[in-house]
């Protein structure tokens, strides 16, 4: 099937097309695709809407896109707004801007900068995020690194190495703040019900339970209960109500 030469799709200006299978699909302007789209590369510059599922090798979006179905891609890069109603599955995922999904995310590696809203679970091998993060389900990855730039809320976190810190005041941080994070800057906290991992390093985190082997609690933390196996280090300015070695 791979050898079949498929046609290309190009939408320029304010226009719509039906879905189907293409080699290259490109939208410049304001495009609407009605139906499922399957292609090798998908590129969109501008504001587009896909009324169906998207399945592509590489996806590059500058501007905003709304996918009303599922999205599957090997490699996806977005600068702007990504809105997905169905499940989102990807290999490499590089997102700058805003991403909102009404379902879950499954990826190999996920690099995010901006604001993220996920209604279900978010699973990856590596998860790196700078910005404001809202995950209603479980966030799980081998390697989790979060720099929070606003009030983030995650229901549960589980993994191998988990690091949460406050976004730095560097010039890059200021740019992110300026571009992506609107009002809640003053309150750079991550609120989580439970965090479970092998190596955990937290700052600016409010959690009910933290369970791990090696746990470091830095300043700005407010933790109800820490259960640890090997080591626990708590910064003097952090608040931990109960510590238990197991």
């Amino acid at each position: 099937m791979k050898d079949d030469k498929k046609p290309n799709l190009k939408i320029i200006g304010d226009n719509s097309a039906s879905g189907g299978r293409y080699d290259d699909a490109k939208i410049i302007g304001n495009g609407v695709i009605k139906g499922d789209l399957e292609c090798v590369t998908f590129k969109s510059i501008g504001d587009s809407r896909l009324e169906g599922n998207l399945k592509a090798g590489t996806v590059k979006i500058t501007g905003s896109i709304h996918v009303e179905g599922k999205t599957t891609a090997d490699d996806i890069r977005v600068t702007g707004d990504l809105n997905i109603d169905g499940d989102f599955q990807a290999g490499h995922c590089h997102l700058r801007g805003g991403i909102t999904t009404k379902s879950g995310i499954k990826a190999d590696d996920l690099s995010l900068m901006g604001y993220v809203t996920v209604k279900k679970n978010c699973e990856a091998e590596s998860f790196k995020a700078d910005g404001q993060i809202k995950i209603d389900g479980l966030l799980t990855a081998d390697d989790i690194e979060i720099k929070t730039y606003g009030a983030s809320r995650i229901s549960e976190i589980g993994g191998d190495r988990i690091v949460i810190r406050k976004g730095s005041g560097s010039s890059l941080g200021k740019v992110i703040k300026l571009l992506f994070v609107p009002s809640s800057w003053g309150n750079a906290m991550v609120t989580v019900n439970s965090i479970e991992g092998d190596d955990i390093h937290l700052s600016n985190t409010r959690a009910k339970v933290v369970r791990g082997n090696n746990v470091v609690i830095e300043n700005g933390c407010d933790i109800d209960l820490v259960e640890y196996k090997d080591n626990l280090r708590v910064n003097r300015s952090a608040s931990v109500r109960e510590k238990k070695k197991i």
């Binding site: 990855a141 589980g158 191998d160 479970e196 991992g197 092998d198 369970r211 082997n213 197991i246």
Partner: peptide, 15 residues
């Protein structure tokens, strides 16, 4: 405790 596996392994297997 019983099986000697870590949180990392458990979550990896779940994923």
């Amino acid at each position: 405790e019983l099986t000697g596996i870590s949180y990392g392994q458990l979550y990896r297997w779940k994923r």
